[in-house]
Design a protein around this nucleic acid. Structure first.
Lengths: 128, 128
DNA sequence: CCTGTACAGTACTGGTAGGTTATATAATCA
DNA sequence: TGATTATATAACCTACCAGTACTGTACAGG
């Protein structure tokens, strides 16, 4: 069976892993819009867009309104904050100073391996 | 056929949409590790982990070293900066002041709809 | 040379994602 | 009421994904 449902973070990442859905979010960031409006920029059927909207809604990234026969969608950005918080854990790893330190240490290690590569203390080189 | 390959941002998001892969990245943030080390925390076969590692490598999130029979993996964080930059576009949408304004406007609109809901100027209510 | 270890590669399978067309529903308009 | 518009739902297909088991390969050590 395996009825486990993915954690919220995975659901959000998966929802964002599609350029169509990201374009929909970009459109909704400028204000709410109907399904037809959201379909317009894409060479894709309306049911396909509705499916994308379901994915986004399931991830909590949009919500539905009701106005006559229209169901305008509106952006809900709070899951994006979870993404921002998560990725921020790694900020130090991509900032320039760290990259330079990382490159320095890697160069240093490569140099050492070239100098006295396969002779002594193999165990201390074992990763982990 | 459809040989189109997804854009880098989609590839990165997709790679992150799995708790196992995010756990692997968290482990590698503390330093490089062998495949066996990375397998240890998971009740999963080694080929399964190797597949996850391939996904991460394809997304540019890790890179491989070589030391004797070990292939230590190392974190490459630069794609995460792309994620951070993308999500930062929406920061204003989730920050508290915006949420309050958003809620205020929504309440205002609901109140107006209740007061003179289904009588006049339908066209001006059409979304888009 | 042989054995154990640390991986990679392949083949298979069940589930899901993302698209299609066709059809149903709900509200508006004439 | 009937036609039109907006959107949802259903059924289907294809491709890919995430596991599995099995097998192959490279290196280390007795």
């Amino acid at each position: 069976m395996d009825v486990r449902q993915p954690d919220p973070l995975s659901t959000t990442f998966a929802a964002l892993a599609d350029p169509t859905r990201r374009a929909i979010l970009a459109r909704l960031a400028k204000g709410e819009a109907s399904v037809k409006d959201l379909c317009a920029p894409f060479e894709m059927s309306q049911p396909a867009i509705s499916k994308h909207l379901r994915v986004l809604e399931h991830a909590g990234l949009i919500e539905q309104g009701r106005q006559a026969q229209w169901r305008p969608r509106r952006l809900r950005a709070s899951p994006l904050r979870e993404i921002a918080d998560w990725v921020d854990q790694y900020r130090s790893h991509w900032e320039e100073s760290f990259e330079r330190l990382d490159a320095y240490l890697r160069d240093l290690q490569d140099t050492q391996e070239q100098q006295h590569g396969d002779d002594d203390d193999r165990d201390t080189h074992r990763p982990g």
